[in-house]
Computed example of a mutant assay.
Amino acid sequence: MDMSYADLAATLLSAVGVIVAIFGGILAIAALWGFNQLKRDAITAAETAGSSEVREQIENGAIREYIKGEIERLTVEEVNSERMDQRIKRRVDAVTFGRPDDDRLLEDEE
């Protein structure tokens, strides 16, 4: 072959460049896959830790007292509301006027 030293060096350097580019592409794909896997693992770990902490706080901590207070407050509001008065009146009217089939305690007439 009539190839000079400069041509051979250029060809070899081009081949090395192509190999490095291919290796870099493979490395980039592996890095993206690894990042996505790491992100999924971090999300799973955070959800697990958060769930267990919230469960612990609900069972034994301050959140339990807060939830009890909110349930009590909302129950009192509902019992004292105009809507509850209307429900009671409808039930009493249904029983009083001889329509016992309409007196279903679990139905919500709105």
Rank of each mutant, 00 (worst) to 15 (best):
T11Q: 04
T11I: 00
L12R: 01
A15N: 00
G17K: 01
G17P: 01
G17F: 01
V18Q: 01
I19R: 00
V20M: 01
A21V: 00
I22D: 06
I22Y: 04
F23N: 04
I26P: 00
I26K: 01
I26Y: 00
L27G: 03
A28K: 10
A30F: 03
A30D: 08
A30W: 02
A31N: 09
W33N: 05
W33S: 06
W33A: 10
G34Y: 04
F35I: 07
F35Y: 06
N36E: 14
N36L: 09
Q37D: 03
K39G: 03
R40S: 14
R40I: 11
A42I: 13
I43K: 15
T44I: 09
A45N: 12
A45H: 10
A46F: 08
E47G: 15
E47T: 13
A49P: 03
A49I: 08
A49R: 14
A49M: 14
S51T: 06
S52H: 12
S52P: 06
R55F: 06
R55V: 04
E56W: 04
Q57F: 02
I58V: 10
E59T: 09
E59W: 07
G61F: 11
A62I: 14
A62Q: 15
I63C: 11
I63R: 08
Y66E: 14
Y66V: 09
I67K: 01
K68L: 13
K68N: 13
G69A: 10
E70M: 11
I71V: 11
I71Y: 06
I71H: 04
R73I: 05
R73E: 11
V76P: 10
E77T: 12
E78G: 03
E78I: 04
V79G: 13
S81H: 09
S81R: 13
S81Q: 08
E82R: 07
R83W: 07
M84T: 15
M84S: 07
M84Y: 08
D85F: 04
Q86R: 08
R87L: 02
I88S: 14
K89A: 10
R90F: 04
R90N: 08
R91N: 09
R91A: 13
V92R: 15
